[in-house]
Design a protein around this nucleic acid. Sequence first.
DNA 1: GTCTGCATGTAAGACGTTACATGATTCT
DNA 2: AGAATCATGTAACGTCTTACATGCAGAC
Lengths: 177, 177
Amino acid sequence: MAQKNILQYLILGLLNQSPKTGYDLKRVFEDDIGEFWQAQHSQIYPELKRLEQADRITHVELIAGKKLKKKQYSITASGIDFFDEWRYSPTSEILASKDEFILKLYFIESKKDNHLDAMFAEQTSLHQAKLNHLLARRQTLFSQSTEIDNHYGHYLILEHAINREQDYLNWLTLAQP
Amino acid sequence: MAQKNILQYLILGLLNQSPKTGYDLKRVFEDDIGEFWQAQHSQIYPELKRLEQADRITHVELIAGKKLKKKQYSITASGIDFFDEWRYSPTSEILASKDEFILKLYFIESKKDNHLDAMFAEQTSLHQAKLNHLLARRQTLFSQSTEIDNHYGHYLILEHAINREQDYLNWLTLAQP
DNA sequence: GTCTGCATGTAAGACGTTACATGATTCT
DNA sequence: AGAATCATGTAACGTCTTACATGCAGAC
């Protein structure tokens, strides 16, 4: 039964780096690892509650400004054990991705279908925009090699995303009739 | 609210190619488009029922052998309209994929972490096996160019999957310390 | 003083997986 | 005779998205 609940490990891993609020976590998902995993705040907050009940994390309440409360979560020893179990276990399954565009292509019967041009042009534009955004981000974050050493995981994930977009664009160019 | 329910379009598209049973559809998902979309039979059968109630498909009952009943579904005119609306509409969103391995990498802090070797070796082996399987499949299905012309969409999707695995392997080789 | 971002939560529903269940046919 | 595959369905559960809801803080 039970699917894997990978979200909990991601939260634990991020809290293992440093204590964070739910909002902080939300932003990491948006900015850093969103290319390979997504989570909305409506999923994060309940998961934090659940992890705290299971004693994998704890929180302290901070006041920002005059009365804005935030809950800063930290990982517990039990949480670290649980996280390490996951991170060092084999990753046997390749979680297949979904791609709506390639499925639409699947239903094109002939190379001469006159929708093909517009479809490829649209996707090329989308992926080019995404690539540009990722490249700009790399420029901002990792223009110095010291940054790479200090945030190696983040660097890897960004490199992989860039690589993926470049390959996708390359395929689009080659496959286009 | 309501997410996109892409499954219904895939079923309609497949029935638009030729009438099929639920089991036939299940196999197409396993064999042909599984690289870019997954669906279990427990999702397919209820969706067929729903599509029939909405008059997008109909079925006839066939008897195989002495008494094995199967339901062969066909697309209706209304179903074709509905399918065409989807297939020729813009595909603006890039549905982000999930990759558990790259996330585990994200939590590796140092290039010198002594788990890295084993992790890369494992993934290389997995993706190599997958690539071999896809290449064998291309050999079986598309060794003649007439096959490509007759099943162009299928050919494209397989090519894309092969391309993706090759790029992934290439990245694994380059990123490995 | 209004707009953007910070901050936290719940509710409803859609989507997807695993397991449970049953029976016929074909191949070895 | 037994195993694999064909064939169809339901139940339970877990995951994920969208929407609803509220309030504080900082910048302009």
